[in-house]
Amino acid sequence: MSDPSSRLNIALAMPQDVARRVFPARLLERLEPGLNLLSTEPLQEFDSPRSRSLLARADILITGWGCPQLDETVLNAAPNLRYILHAAGSAKHHVGQACWDRGLQVSTAAEANAVPVAEYTVAMILLANKNVLQLARIVHTLHSAVEPEDYYPQLGNFRKRVGIIGASKIGRHVIRLLRSYDLEVVVADPYLDPEEAIELGAELVGLDELVASSDVVSLHAPSLPSTRHMIDARQIARLRPGATFINTARGELVDQDALLRRIEQGDLYAVLDVTTPWSLPTDSGFYVNPNVLLTPHVAGSLGSELERMAASTVEEALRLSRGEALRFPLRAADLAFTA
Rank of each mutant, 00 (worst) to 15 (best):
S214A: 08
I125L: 04
I10S: 08
W100L: 01
L253C: 06
L85C: 14
V122K: 09
R240C: 09
E315C: 15
A19D: 02
Y181R: 13
A325S: 05
L318Y: 13
T40V: 09
D208N: 13
P79I: 02
R262S: 01
A128R: 03
S6E: 14
A188W: 01
A114C: 04
T313A: 14
A114N: 00
V292T: 07
H173W: 01
G323K: 09
R322L: 12
S284N: 05
V185G: 02
L302H: 15
E72A: 14
S90A: 10
L200Q: 14
A13N: 11
V274I: 00
G163V: 04
G266N: 00
V18H: 06
E252I: 14
T73D: 06
R161Q: 08
A237E: 07
S279E: 11
D47A: 15
L12K: 06
A311V: 08
C67I: 10
L126S: 04
I170D: 01
L200M: 09
S218E: 02
S226P: 11
R331F: 05
R319L: 11
L37Y: 15
P68R: 15
L306A: 11
L43Y: 00
Q44V: 00
L253Q: 03
T121H: 15
I246S: 00
V117N: 07
P194F: 11
A56N: 06
R322D: 14
V162E: 02
E29D: 13
V18R: 11
F158L: 09
S301Q: 08
F286Y: 07
E149W: 12
S51H: 04
G201Y: 07
G285A: 10
E147F: 13
A310K: 11
E315N: 14
H94M: 12
R250D: 04
D101K: 06
L177C: 02
H143D: 10
A98M: 08
D283P: 14
K160C: 00
V74D: 01
L55K: 09
S301N: 06
D232M: 03
E264G: 00
A11T: 10
V205A: 13
R102F: 04
R240S: 14
R319A: 09
N247C: 15
L239M: 15
G251R: 13
V211T: 13
S144T: 02
F23I: 04
N291D: 12
L260A: 06
V217R: 13
L200G: 06
S214L: 04
L204P: 04
V162L: 03
P4K: 03
A77Y: 03
L326Q: 12
L306V: 03
L200I: 12
E196A: 10
G201R: 09
F23P: 02
A270V: 04
L210P: 02
M124D: 11
L55Y: 02
R20F: 04
V106Y: 03
S144G: 04
T141S: 15
Q97G: 12
P241E: 05
R250G: 04
L320H: 15
E252R: 12
L204G: 10
Y83M: 03
E111S: 01
R7E: 05
I198Y: 11
E32Y: 12
F158G: 07
G303D: 00
V132T: 10
L133F: 11
H173A: 02
L207D: 03
D71Y: 07
P33S: 08
R159P: 01
G242A: 03
T295H: 14
H297C: 12
M309Y: 02
R250T: 00
D17T: 13
G323N: 06
I125C: 08
R20N: 07
